[in-house]
Design a protein around this nucleic acid. Structure first.
Length: 809
DNA sequence: GAGCTGGAACTATTA
DNA sequence: ACTAATAGTTCCAGC
């Protein structure tokens, strides 16, 4: 097969149509309700993505399970003849403009709530938003965050709540910064978001829409008020701490050593992330300040609540929860009342039927996921403070979706890669600053091909750097850095447990952004691993990537989403100091005979470093291992010259993908790097991924500016099945992630593909599959997570197969 | 004084 | 079960 044959799919893009026309929606999946879109300036539409996007993704599983008569699930939902996907029925819009869901929707299983409670939640919020302002419930102001806090898992909040991150502040600061944001204009503001009601008259109007309101950016931890700190009294703060799960206390015995006097929450050295802001925010303070809060603030608060709920679902570390349980009585008491206080009112008749359907889902499975936690009494539908315009439909791709880095004239490229090492900070620490570039300065990202005058929003989140599909990293979160040294405005958003930094991409800057505002926060493994549904382990899972996304509005009203991931970044202090790291290799392949010299550049190379070539069987075990000769004399801490060993089989007929790693000791090994042995006498096959696009392909958009060597090679980016022919997708070099890194080959003219029904219906057709099949199963369904992914889904594969082909098996 | 950093102590986990 | 090695967290100190 040839790639060309599949180009259309290969290059597929995620085109999200806001359905302004109303019909397109049917063709593309999951889309923003026309109403919403119509009300919002295009730019706004993409800016923030929102939770909604998660809705889709999260919802998918559940939805897909349903016969979905005419209800395409989320993005993939497109059913050829069916009604517009998800929220798209153009003709079926709610009074408020929000598209009405079709009856079948009821079939959505609770599953949605289970893993995507957040989305659901968002959805609810959105729904609420849709409600006329007159219907808003004043009760919003009565939201008793503290109670909710009790449930909240600090860890979940940790990112935001962490003192170190000064989330409270940062959040607040975010808002503040937003105010100052030059592009606050509703029309042009990069922050604009479909989520935010354009009609808002709130003071915060200038503030990045969507971001504040929709995204919760306002993370719960962040006091809605602009000055969280002030609103937090010392007492409340301490109190909050006390509630902290303080995992360390449970584990550590510093007290015994005298190092840490007490584990008492009150004395906890590390202010509980969770605690705090929320808990610390007394009703009084909240209410008191609330007056100054705009609807956005309220939204943020609501979001916070939602976040909590989310946390309960996914984000809340059980450990924390356990702690909470220890205080169950109080918690329960608090929580219950809170719900009451919240004045959560059951969905009223005002709400479209569709929206009601969500109720059960949310409460049921969603909460069940957190068995140990008392169920929050509050109801999702409650928040009604949002303006109609704030309704946001789930339209943007979920964070764990694999998106291309370029499409048509557009290309999102990392002009300057981040350093391969960046010590992440814990919540208990102060910030360790922004991620830097290896040559000094900071990473730079630029969107090429965009000629409009409308600013866009660049999103940044911390993604994984393992061999699986790129997805938000469970143990790391992006941390917004502010200060004199930070020149780039940014805003924090929280999407389903993942912090997203939103940075303006301005035409006057050539759509180029210097990422000097992004730090990395490390969450305690124990907190994350214990949360239900989390299957990833934190131990030795210390590599991340910066993932950038941009949503480009298309003339057609659709939105093109592009994504690019940086080179891996080692975030562990120890690993960074001890483990060898290969950043680049001078060659990607050579004939089976070997003998050629390959230069590795990276870190922590020793004269005693060994380079081991390995061929792995599909099941992971090593079929062949060979130590390559290294030139000790040429060995430098940052470079190593190695002679390619001959492959075990000199008669291969097709390229064979092997791996190699640098070893400094028993357990000090670098990540696997990939290398391809080519048949000795067979001409290089054009389709061989590695060779064709060598220079650019290299990590495509990602690799530039890294040095003399052709390209950085990271295992996760370049994994090619040993035998291309065995690829389930037949010829496609299967690799979702690759797409992010590798530009389309010249021969394959980029085409703007939208996630049309055609493409997605295939993948979505079968119930139970995640939309597009691109979405990491794991993220959605723990059970699926355990299932080994077919090679076709491996990120490292050379090319990204069509969505339809990437379905999990 | 706060934010960054580099180091290292101390605990937890794994081999 | 015990010990050593390794990894994760937290704390300290200097800039």
């Amino acid at each position: 097969m040839t790639r060309l044959e599949h180009d259309p799919e290969f290059d597929f893009e995620f085109l999200f149509e806001f359905d302004q026309g109303g019909e397109a929606a049917t063709e593309h999946y999951g889309y923003a309700p026309s109403s919403t879109s119509s009300a919002l300036p295009l730019p706004a539409a993409h800016t923030s993505l929102a939770a909604p996007c998660h809705d889709l993704q999260t919802a998918t599983p559940g939805i897909s399970a349903v016969p979905a008569a005419g209800h395409p699930s989320g993005y993939g939902g497109a059913v050829d003849s069916g009604p517009a996907g998800y929220f798209l029925s153009s003709g079926n819009t709610r009074p408020n403009g929000a598209p009405a869901l079709e009856s079948p929707r009821i079939e959505i299983t609770s599953y949605l709530g289970l893993h995507h409670g957040s989305s659901q939640f968002f959805h609810d919020v959105e729904v609420e938003d849709v409600l006329p302002s007159c219907k808003r419930s004043p009760s919003t102001a009565t939201l008793t965050l503290p109670s909710l806090e009790a449930y909240r898992d600090p860890s979940c909040l940790s990112p935001a709540s962490s003192l170190s991150s000064r989330s409270c502040n940062s959040e607040a600061s975010s808002y503040e910064s937003n105010y100052s944001y030059p592009y606050a204009s509703p029309q042009t503001s990069p922050w604009q978001s479909p989520c935010v009601s354009p009609k808002t008259t709130d003071p915060e109007e200038g503030f990045p829409r969507g971001l504040g309101a929709c995204h919760l950016l306002g993370s719960p931890r962040h006091s809605p008020s602009t000055s969280p700190r002030t609103s937090i009294t010392e007492e409340s703060w301490l109190g909050a701490r006390s509630s902290r799960p303080t995992s360390p206390c449970n584990k550590r015995k510093y007290s015994l050593n005298g190092r840490q006097p007490s584990c008492s929450p009150h004395h906890s050295p590390t202010p509980s992330p969770h605690g705090s802001p929320r808990v610390s925010v007394t009703e009084d303070t909240w209410l008191g300040n609330s007056t100054q809060y705009t609807s956005s603030a309220i939204v943020a608060a609501i979001n916070a609540l939602t976040t909590d709920s989310l946390d309960l679902g996914e984000g809340v570390p059980i450990k924390s929860r356990k702690t909470t349980l220890e205080h169950v009585p109080s918690v329960a008491l608090k929580a219950e009342p809170t719900g009451e206080e919240l004045g959560v009112t059951p969905p009223t008749s005002d709400l479209p039927p569709e929206e009601f359907t969500f109720q059960p889902l949310r409460k049921g499975p969603f909460c069940e996921q957190y068995l140990s936690v008392p169920q929050p009494p509050y109801q999702w539908a409650k928040p009604k403070s949002l303006t109609p315009a704030t309704y946001v439909s789930p339209s943007l791709p979920a964070l764990d979706w694999q998106l291309p880095s370029h499409s048509g004239p557009y290309e999102l490229r990392i002009e300057v890669q981040p350093k391969s090492h960046h010590r992440a900070h814990y919540e208990t620490e102060g910030s360790r600053g922004a991620v830097k570039a290896s040559a000094g300065g900071h990473p730079i990202v630029q969107l090429h091909g965009y000629l409009e005058n409308e600013p866009l929003t660049l999103q940044l989140f911390i993604g994984t750097a393992d061999d699986r599909l790129l997805r938000p990293h469970a143990f790391y979160q992006v941390h917004r850095i502010t200060g004199k040294t930070v020149s780039t405005t940014s805003h924090e958003a929280l999407l389903c447990n993942t912090k997203v930094l939103e940075i303006p991409l301005l035409p006057e800057n050539n759509m180029r952004a210097i990422i000097d505002c992004a730090g990395i926060l490390k969450l305690r493994n124990s907190d994350i691993e214990l949360r239900k549904g989390e299957t990833d382990i934190g131990r030795k899972n210390t590599r991340v990537r910066l993932v950038f996304r941009v949503h480009v509005p298309q003339p057609s009203g659709r939105t093109l989403s592009l994504q690019v991931a940086s080179n891996p970044i080692e975030c562990s202090q120890r690993s960074a100091q001890e483990l060898p790291l290969v950043e680049k290799q001078s060659m990607e392949s050579c004939p089976v005979g070997g003998g050629k010299k390959m230069v590795l550049s990276g870190h922590n190379f020793l004269q005693d470093s060994k380079v081991i070539f390995v061929e792995k069987a599909p099941d992971g075990h090593h079929v062949w291992e060979m130590e390559a000769k290294t030139d000790r004399d040429l060995c430098r801490p940052n470079s190593l010259v190695v002679e390619i060993p001959p492959f075990r089989n000199q008669r291969i007929s097709s390229p064979v993908q092997v791996s190699f790693y640098v070893c400094n000791g028993k357990r000090k090994r670098s990540q696997y790097q990939h290398f391809t042995y080519l048949p000795a006498h067979v001409p290089v096959i054009k389709t061989e991924p590695t060779d064709d696009y060598e220079p650019t392909l290299t990590c495509g958009a990602v690799g530039q500016g890294l040095g003399p060597l052709p390209r950085p090679c990271y295992s996760q980016q370049r994994t090619v099945p040993p035998d291309p022919g065995s690829c389930p997708v037949g010829g496609f070099a299967p690799c979702a992630q690759r797409s992010n890194l590798m530009p389309t080959p010249p021969s394959a003219s980029p085409k703007l593909h939208d996630l049309s029904s055609a493409a997605y219906s295939k993948g979505l057709a079968s119930p139970g599959h995640s939309h597009l099949g691109l979405q990491p199963l794991a993220a959605e369904d723990p059970t699926l997570r355990e299932v080994p992914r077919p090679l076709a889904m491996q990120p490292g594969s050379p090319e990204q197969p069509p969505p339809a082909l990437l379905q999990p098996q």
